[in-house]
Design a binder for these strands. Structure first.
Lengths: 155, 155
DNA sequence: ACACTACCGTTGAGGATGTCAACTATTGGT
DNA sequence: ACCAATAGTTGACATCCTCAACGGTAGTGT
């Protein structure tokens, strides 16, 4: 294992100093993949995935989002929101309320059970976030969030 | 459209100030989704996707990665690397060379055609990266890359 | 009032991706 | 010489993405 291990370590080292490792697109993809994997296992014990957690979070935060707004915000196809809300509704965590200002639209709101589950799930995701942030020095963490927000909401 | 447009804008505004919009996992996912979409359209004209571009980049950079190293670095299942390298090889852009130090392993190297295509594709991705970075003030761009690298390569 | 265009949610289909288990050939260690 | 572990590959299955179409509603203009 010593030879193979070293050969592999050398290969990885060369990859980290390659041009690709300086590519912002790639760094975003890899950082996201790591964060996603951690979030996935943390949310699994609550029967949630990052997507359903996001919908539940907005519903529990009294944002009163329509499904279309959810689709735009989460960068998903509207048809995927249908499936996510279907499942959350079946579990009694959210409800579809008719939007009083537009009868075509549904507003997604969390039930009491949904808010309770979200509160529990949020503790798990906060732990994941702390672990993520541990990779950067404490005095930089605030700026990291700010920069990412600018990337995520530029337009 | 004025009423609907405003109602939607209000909804989006409330989403941007919601707790989710401060979640690092979510920000990474959204920033990555935006960057991925841009990279996808930029690479399409070269017949590449972000993944095949990444493999080609490492092969053209004389990193001499084995397929397993590619899988780890790109956070993909080894079986997905097979399909990517298959396609690049079929197009004459890369070749599988037997690893002299381990006959089980293949080292992926770019052909001349592969290097030429990569050079052209890189111009497109650089343009995408510039557009991405335009979202943050110039004096912060260096730090953004550094922070993302820490997130992507922590372990 | 009317026609017309655009939109919301939903369904369904097809392709692309993710995940996992099994298999062969090879390796390193005992 | 044996044996557990590893690299690449294949195949199966689930999930996800993307798109087109539909009924119901909304806004616009006439």
């Amino acid at each position: 294992m010593s030879t193979a291990g070293k050969a592999q370590a050398i290969g990885v080292d060369r990859m980290r100093t390659s041009a690709l490792a300086r590519d912002l697109n790639f760094l975003l993809a890899r950082a996201n993949a790591l964060a996603l994997a951690a979030a996935n296992t943390a949310l699994a014990e609550h029967g949630l995935k990052p997507r359903s957690y996001s919908v539940l979070a907005l519903a529990a935060d009294d944002v009163l989002p329509t499904q279309r707004e959810l689709a735009e915000f989460l960068r998903l196809d509207p048809s995927q929101i249908v499936a996510i809300v279907d499942e959350l509704e079946k579990r009694g965590l959210v409800e579809r309320h008719p939007d009083p200002s537009d009868r075509r639209a549904n507003v997604v709101v969390a039930t009491e059970a949904g808010r309770a589950l979200f509160a529990r799930a949020q503790k798990s995701t906060r732990a994941v976030e702390r672990a993520l942030k541990a990779a950067v020095p404490p005095e930089e963490r605030e700026r990291l969030g700010e920069l990412l927000r600018q990337l995520a909401f530029r337009e």
